[in-house]
């Protein structure tokens, strides 16, 4: 059965008819052509499909599309500024070598975004714990941790060395 839902998608109000059983990830990919959220496992075990719902990181493969009715969804496509200027996280992922095959990268960055929204200057331990739901097979995570630290230093004013 198709249901009409309305929500905020990357800052814009959208409405769409969606079947009850469709996941948020499938809706983003199939209906909105937003391919950033990737299906790495489909079971919430790899984090490649991570998007933000009301500023919280969720696995979009496990959330039903109908459940975002009235909420706000942010995907990797909505992270850069209006003229395409990269978010500090995106920038530092590039500069620090945190990207290899890149399949996990959008989910990784969205998880990091949620982490920094909640905790602008996390310690390394907090980064590792907060990012634990995102698997990467290429990098060994070291450069991702470095990138998140660098981005947090850019956006953080507490002056703490993390």
């Amino acid at each position: 059965m198709a249901v009409k839902i309305s929500f905020k998608l990357n800052g814009e109000d959208v409405s769409i008819n969606v079947d009850d059983h469709v996941t948020l990830m499938d809706m983003l990919r199939e209906e909105f052509d937003l391919f950033g959220a990737k299906e790495g496992c489909g079971y919430g075990e790899c984090g490649s499909c991570t998007v933000l719902v009301d500023d919280k990181a969720v696995n979009s493969c496990l959330m039903l599309a109908v459940a975002v009715n009235g909420r706000s969804v942010l995907t990797i496509e909505g992270l850069a500024g209006p003229r395409g200027e990269l978010d500090p996280l995106q920038k530092s992922f590039v500069e620090k070598g945190a990207v290899q095959c890149g399949f996990c990268t959008p989910g990784m960055i969205m998880s990091a975004k949620a982490l920094l929204l909640e905790k602008p200057c996390p310690t390394e331990e907090e980064i590792r714990k907060g990012m634990a739901g995102n698997l990467c097979r290429c990098t060994g995570y070291a450069k991702i941790v470095e990138a998140i630290k660098a981005a947090s230093e850019r956006g953080c004013s507490c002056g703490k060395d993390s």
Binding site: L34, L86, V94, V99
Partner: peptide
Amino acid sequence: QRVPKLDAWDKVQGKTMYIHD
């Protein structure tokens, strides 16, 4: 030089097309 990966700009924006996409 520590040159950033050339395709990283697309990858961090979710613009890279994998077979799934």
